[in-house]
């Protein structure tokens, strides 16, 4: 299975404020009643984008027309905490996001996103704050995540070193973010391990 090598992603950004944004917030459980992931995009952040009482659009940044074309999500600490539901990164990806920049990520969310080919990189708080300001002043600013140079740049002239675990970076840039083929290829060695485990 040849996969695309993901080395650089550019697009407009949108900042979603708040710490510990959990997966229930990203995709409320009631939208998980589905046997495929198709169609999850429209429910991303549903309960904070629409007023639960009136159903009207809230002031959530994803409702802000200025950020309509954003494809890079920018967030705070511990983004994606909570459940293991892959519905969360799937809904973001189907919504149109290609990457997430945050101060830190919850582990399962991070892994799920990488496996979808949606890079998650971290920056320091001040750098995130600076990006927030730049895109707020001009939503057309282009944000670039360069996984080879390990940098986040903005067309406003910023350039910050970003972080991502080596294994995830390597998997993305070499087009191995979905490991299934490699896992399948190692079947003989897998059989040996299975053989060595009395409970299997």
């Amino acid at each position: 299975m040849a996969l695309e090598k993901i080395t650089r992603i550019s697009g407009r950004g949108v900042f979603v404020p708040g710490a510990d944004i959990d997966t229930d917030r990203i995709i409320p459980a009631r939208f998980m009643k589905c046997v495929t992931f198709d169609g999850l995009g429209e429910y991303a952040f549903h309960d904070v984008r629409f007023d639960p009482e009136t159903g009207e659009k809230t002031e959530h940044p994803l409702n802000d027309e200025r950020f309509e074309d954003a494809s890079i999500l920018i967030a705070g600490v511990n983004f994606g905490c909570g459940s293991s539901r892959e519905h969360a990164p799937q809904s973001l990806s189907k919504y149109g996001f290609k990457a997430v920049i945050a101060q830190s990520f919850a582990e399962i969310f991070f892994g799920n996103s990488t496996t979808l080919g949606m890079p998650c990189v971290t920056l320091e708080a001040e750098q995130i704050d600076r990006l927030r300001q730049v895109i707020d002043e001009d939503p057309a600013v282009e944000v670039t995540i360069d996984l080879e140079a390990l940098e986040v740049r903005s067309s406003a002239g910023d350039s910050f070193p970003c972080r991502i675990p080596d294994s995830a970076r390597d998997a993305l840039v070499s087009g191995r973010w979905d490991p299934i083929q490699e896992l399948l290829d190692n079947a003989p060695r897998t059989a040996e391990v299975a053989e060595s485990l009395p409970y299997v």
Partner: peptide
């Protein structure tokens, strides 16, 4: 530990998964 759906696929197909 908890895993995402693509990893559920990996475990079904190979009984293994990639892990740090």
């Amino acid at each position: 530990f908890g895993i995402g759906t693509t990893q559920v696929r990996d475990v079904l197909a190979t009984q293994t998964m990639a892990m740090e």
